[in-house]
């Protein structure tokens, strides 16, 4: 009669990143190993609280023995792997991926991506002015969040957060094919008509502000969204007994949006409608 042990013995693997040997736990990704080696890797569709879909391909690295480049986010590190992260091939593919994204999508509210584009010398304008773009209108269908698919890079993160990586609501999915892919409800019905439960987990994982809290959207429209003046305070949700951690983003002594830390074990960045949006009573309610 013995209890099942809580701790598991941890095995490790060692791989070479840019000539430097790094040791990471078994099951870690090549991206984890790159991070452990102190190498900064751009990522767009990757998030620590979601299953990697390896769709954006901006994290690719060169791996000995592999004909093509390898997405570091979704490739498990194995003993003896040799990886290069800054070769001409790697830089070229990263540049092209960023350039491609910039050529079809409004990245004006994605500072990380804009930064990488500058780093890698991406120039989306060389594909001509008449090129096809996402070309979508902003969808404002309720007072909690908006969808601006002109900014969407189709990274699948929102679909995963709505679906089996977090909420299990499946209100949205990838629809269409190829460049016509769009994140959509069935037949593009409005969110209030859909299965959406307004957890806002999709908004939280969006890398380009294509999904945006209405509070942020309104402040941006009014020209009064000032991220540099904002503070972020970590606290705990006031509703049920789960103990979700909240990050209160405040500007001018008012809460302007709520996120949750991805690295916290209680809910790994995910919240429900009450935690995400139920704070407005602090300032006297929605009509204040």
């Amino acid at each position: 009669m013995t209890a099942v042990p809580v701790t598991l013995t941890e095995t490790t693997v060692t791989i070479s990143v840019d000539g430097q040997n790094v040791t990471v736990p078994d099951g870690a990704s090549v991206l984890d190993a790159c991070t452990a080696a102190g190498v900064d890797t751009p990522t767009i569709c990757y998030a620590e609280n979601l299953t990697p879909v390896n769709a954006c391909r901006v994290c690719v690295v060169e791996m000995e023995g592999s004909r093509t480049l390898v997405p570091s986010c979704s490739r498990a590190a194995e003993d003896g792997m040799t990886v290069q992260t800054d070769t001409e091939r790697v830089r070229h593919s990263r540049k092209m991926v960023l350039e491609f994204l910039g050529s079809g999508t409004d990245l004006s509210q994605a500072p990380d991506i804009l930064g990488w584009m500058a780093d890698y010398g991406a120039d989306p304008d060389r594909y001509g002015a008449d090129r096809e773009t996402m070309d979508e209108e902003v969808k404002v269908q309720d007072n909690l969040y908006i969808r601006d698919y002109d900014k969407c890079v189709l990274c699948y993160k929102c679909v995963e957060a709505c679906g089996d990586d977090a909420q299990h609501t499946f209100a949205i999915a990838m629809s269409g094919r190829g460049f016509g892919n769009r994140i959509s409800t069935e037949f593009d019905i409005t969110l209030p008509d859909s299965a959406c439960v307004y957890c806002g987990n999709c908004v939280a994982v969006c890398p380009t502000n294509a999904l945006q809290f209405k509070t942020e959207f309104d402040l941006r429209q009014a020209g009064n969204w000032r991220e540099e003046d904002q503070d972020v305070t970590r606290t705990v949700c006031s509703y049920c007994g789960v103990g979700c951690n909240l990050e209160l983003h405040t500007q001018d002594e008012r809460i302007v949006k709520v996120t949750s830390p991805n690295d916290h074990s209680v809910t790994s960045g995910h919240l429900c409608i009450k935690g995400r949006f139920g704070w407005q009573y602090v300032h006297g309610g929605a009509d204040d």
Binding site: D142, L144, Y198, C272, I273, K274, G278, Y281, G285, A286
Partner: peptide, 18 residues
């Protein structure tokens, strides 16, 4: 229900579509 809390004094404060 999901978007409400007890007697609603807190959760009534936001504009829930559900």
């Amino acid at each position: 229900s999901l978007d409400m809390y007890n007697t609603g004094v807190q959760s009534g404060g936001f504009d829930s579509p559900i």
